[in-house]
Amino acid sequence: MVSISNAEAVDVGDRILAAAASCVRDFGVERVTLAEIARRAGVSRPTVYRRWPDTRTILASLLTERVTGAWRSVPARSPGREGIVERIVAVATRLRRDELLLTVLRSAPELAMVYIADRLGTSQQILIDLVAEELRKAQDANTVRPGDPRQLAAMVLLITQSVIQSGQIVEPILTADALSVELTHALNGYLHP
């Protein structure tokens, strides 16, 4: 049973993340302040500080929730490689349309580059773990090629992340639907036994 204080804590945390998302959409990443997040969430700054030490940490949590939430929102429809690929392509499509993610990519490219070129973020680590587990099961069913599932998942992340980040530059050549078709071919080809 959840106590009232725990329920309030979850609610406050969600309100803070929602407030941060609205700030990013309204101002871009660089102009988001902790004071404005607190004001929009209807809480004091110390309440925010008890949960996150600074604005960057709030934004990292927000992006992690957004990316992992996209994965959770797309159920696996079928087992094996084809089901995994279908789910990954659906998640990529959602993230390519996500207003918050697009705002971060456009308004704070230097922040985005940290997670594109320098280090894995929390959401990337979580996705690698989730996809690796699904790939392991598909390997057992002989629908995914042999290999270390985490290594395969990391490569799948790189391929898919590239489509999410850069798909718009090829829109004159590959419409959103065509891009999904080609991503499906690329992932199926890479993972096929």
Rank of each mutant, 00 (worst) to 15 (best):
P149V: 11
A90N: 04
E99W: 01
R97T: 05
L95E: 11
Y115Q: 07
V85C: 02
V48L: 11
G80A: 10
P46L: 08
E36T: 02
S123D: 11
P46G: 06
L152R: 10
I116Q: 12
P149Q: 09
R96G: 14
A90Y: 03
L63H: 02
R51M: 12
L130D: 09
T47S: 15
L59F: 01
T93E: 15
C23M: 05
L95F: 05
K137W: 06
V48I: 09
G83Q: 03
P146Q: 14
L100M: 08
V74S: 04
V24L: 13
S78C: 07
D129C: 08
Q139F: 03
R25D: 00
A92F: 07
A90K: 06
L63E: 05
R106M: 12
L62P: 00
N142E: 12
T93N: 13
V131Y: 04
P75Y: 03
E65A: 15
P75G: 07
A141G: 11
T93R: 15
A141M: 09
E110P: 00
A76N: 06
V43G: 08
A108M: 07
Q124D: 13
R66N: 07
Q124M: 13
E134A: 15
I37V: 15
A108F: 04
Y49I: 13
E134G: 05
E36Q: 13
